[in-house]
Design a protein around this nucleic acid. Structure first.
Lengths: 202, 202
DNA sequence: TCGGTATGTTTACAGTGGCAACATTATGGC
DNA sequence: GCCATAATGTTGCCACTGTAAACATACCGA
């Protein structure tokens, strides 16, 4: 066969170069393809074969990078939590911290669920087996919330109960919206979140 | 074949009588078997074949009573919502209505999720396509909550926001517990629910 | 009694996740 | 530079899933 000068098979998009045997970074490409699929349809139709086809690789190739499908979904879920955490941090900064920032975090939580329903659901439905040593994405999001309470609401008597309260509220709103129990209404969400989060700072 | 005197094949448990061709009330039996399976394991392993085997019938027989698996799951979900509604009504009465009853409704909601995780999740994950004429189980539960607000908290300024707030809070708590984000702790739940529901009655 | 209708069974098919054996490419020690 | 070896990808296969089609059996009204 003729000489191929590509030392490694670099492709910015996920697809493998035609005729190439090794992909380059299959693991990352599969995760990217999965996220794209989750973002595209409300019902995340992700199967190993479909995912593999997106990337241009045979289905069983994925098993070189993930022990099983669950592990793949875990990776996607973790990426979702990481993005949520990033959005919340951004919202907090943009609002200048304090009570306003606290409310912004809550609103960002619900908005993320609305914008990426399949990813959000996947991220939270997946139940982590037991704590691994490396910090996962969910930890980041919760710690941010918890820290926000400490900084924004110094007068609160029971920060744990308050944090749980705030978290449960936005999570419940998000879930009810995803499951079509209530309609997405940004103004209403803001009102409820503000009412509660403000109420905590009594 | 010899004469069989059973005019209809009545079986109190779900299983079909050996040698009988018709079941008697397959639809109800399948739903009962599904509920039992949901109650047994946290992960609801319900497949058509397994369900059919529980009842003692071939897998495709279920298609005489449900157009597809989704419809079967819908029926199970509806039963779950109905039970939730019943528990809430019971809690309300037992607590004697008013603010106490209102809190009891919230606690019952979370407790149900904890006691029947698979059924609760199924009930809410299933998204109803569009309103049918006959009233479904979920409507009952919400109307009860909504009515509870009116009766228990006459002074509340915005009952819709308050109802949504209360619902989201307990739903979020329930979901976070199911997904192992937080541990089940009845005292903590009562505290959070009480704190919030009491707070609404300002 | 007879025929239609409801209910259940058998068989089969496409699609799924996953294992095993094989093929190909990258890499590190000599 | 050469070559053993690990890393990565492919093909073939298996058990299992939901479900459609054709056939069998039981019930019920005329």
């Amino acid at each position: 066969m003729a000489i191929e000068d590509n030392s490694v098979n670099i492709k910015s998009d996920g697809a493998k170069a035609a005729g190439a045997y090794h992909h380059g970074d299959l693991r990352a490409a599969v995760i990217a393809a999965g996220l794209k699929r989750l973002a595209a349809g409300d019902d995340g139709e992700l199967g190993l074969r479909a995912l593999a086809r997106d990337v241009g690789v045979s289905a069983t190739a994925l098993y070189r990078h993930f022990p099983d499908k669950e592990a793949l979904l875990d990776a996607l879920a973790d990426e979702g939590l990481r993005r949520l955490g990033a959005l919340q941090a951004q919202a907090w900064l943009k609002a200048g911290g304090k009570v306003g920032g606290f409310k912004a975090i809550g609103a960002a939580y619900v908005r993320f669920a609305h914008d990426e329903p399949a990813l959000f659901r996947l991220s939270f439905t997946r139940q982590m087996p037991d704590r691994k040593d490396e910090e996962d994405g969910g930890e980041v999001a919760y710690n941010l919330l918890r820290a926000g309470i400490g900084e924004a609401l110094p007068g609160v008597t029971e920060p744990d109960a308050a944090a749980l309260h705030a978290w449960a509220l936005v999570h419940g709103l998000a879930m009810l919206i995803l499951d079509r129990r209530i309609d997405w209404d940004e103004a209403l969400v803001d009102k409820v979140v503000g009412l509660t989060f403000g109420g905590l700072a009594r």
